[in-house]
């Protein structure tokens, strides 16, 4: 079939409501909505500080139809460990405990707690929706910010100097049972990965690229397109990693698109020279090749 007829493959029930406070075109609520469709109502969400702390709605509202615990910035994985432990004591092995954290809460301030939980192989699903900077506080750089990007703390005259932290490699080194990357542009892929993760016991990590119109500086309507382009130009490879050692690509074709259009349609990269884009491309290519070696070693 030539069309991706996904209507039948996406559950119709909604565990999220309208009226949430995400900016127009934000991918983060969409990511949550899709993930919850795959997880179903027997889910408890633990949420450290992030854009989603606002998106979830101010007291006395909630945009989720599942229990949600807002927790401190660096404590997502630790708080979830406690929730899991309590459920275990209540004999509830079926409810999924999901951490929903941004890149700051995952790559930076929450990394210690995440590492601890992953090392203990806590039975939690940790989802990082990655918008590549501290967006809720006004676009400051995080260790998920790509090299060369403008943020409000890396001005265009001195843009981000470090390459993005390879968070899935960090998690893979913990040898947790399941790691996957996904984007909102490929809902079925995302849902399948969440369903797979749901069925596994132990720490599961899902890295979801989440384009941010105001932070990346692109038009609201292009959110899905940006996520799609990020995959197509290999900036954000779609992957699965089992037990930290079995790597595989989950894209159904291995064509690659040029990087230039992806960078050029984002204001945060507007200052990049052709040489800098070439540097970016070589970063992307190098990482891709490194992943290819992991995949090859897995076969």
């Amino acid at each position: 079939m030539s069309q991706v007829m996904i209507a039948d493959r996406v559950p119709t029930h909604e565990l999220m409501t309208s009226g949430h406070l995400a900016c127009p075109g934000c991918a983060a609520p969409l990511a949550m909505r899709l993930v919850l469709k795959a997880l179903g109502p027997q889910t408890i969400v633990v949420m450290p500080a992030s854009c989603w702390s606002i998106i979830a709605g101010p007291w006395p509202q909630s945009s989720l139809k599942v229990p949600l615990y807002h927790t401190a910035f660096e404590t997502g994985a630790a708080t979830a460990s406690g929730v899991r432990a309590a459920l275990d004591m209540q004999g509830d092995r079926d409810t999924t405990v999901m951490v929903w954290a941004g890149d700051g809460g995952t790559f930076d301030i929450g990394l210690q707690a995440l590492s601890g939980a992953a090392e203990r192989n806590e039975d939690i699903l940790y989802c990082c929706y990655d918008n590549e900077a501290y967006m809720n506080t006004g676009v400051q750089r995080s260790s998920a910010t790509p090299r060369g990007a403008w943020t409000s703390t890396t001005p265009a005259s001195h843009p981000e100097a470090s390459a993005k932290k390879d968070i899935v490699a960090v998690l893979a080194a913990h040898h947790i049972p399941y790691i996957a990357t996904a984007t909102v542009a490929y809902p079925v892929d995302l849902l399948e990965k969440v369903k797979k993760a749901k069925a596994i016991r132990g720490t599961r990590f899902l890295h979801i690229l989440s384009p941010c119109p105001p932070g990346w500086k692109f038009p609201d309507e292009a959110t899905i397109e940006l996520a799609r382009m990020a995959v197509a130009c290999r900036v954000f490879p779609l992957l699965e990693i089992e037990d930290g050692v079995r790597w595989r690509f989950t894209m159904d074709d291995d064509t690659t698109e040029p990087l230039q259009p992806y960078l050029r349609c984002q204001g945060r990269f507007a200052h990049l020279t052709d040489e800098q884009i070439a540097q970016f491309q070589s970063d992307v290519t190098a990482r891709w090749k490194w992943i290819e070696r992991q995949v090859a070693a897995s076969e």
């Binding site: 409501t17 309208s18 406070l21 127009p24 709605g57 006395p60 509202q61 949600l68 807002h70």
Partner: peptide, 20 residues
């Protein structure tokens, strides 16, 4: 006001359509 910040309603009370 409840003793802790526990939700009592959904975000449907916020008509975000006025933003567009």
């Amino acid at each position: 006001v409840s003793p802790v910040a526990v939700s009592q309603t959904s975000t449907l009370v916020t008509k975000t359509g006025s933003w567009k």
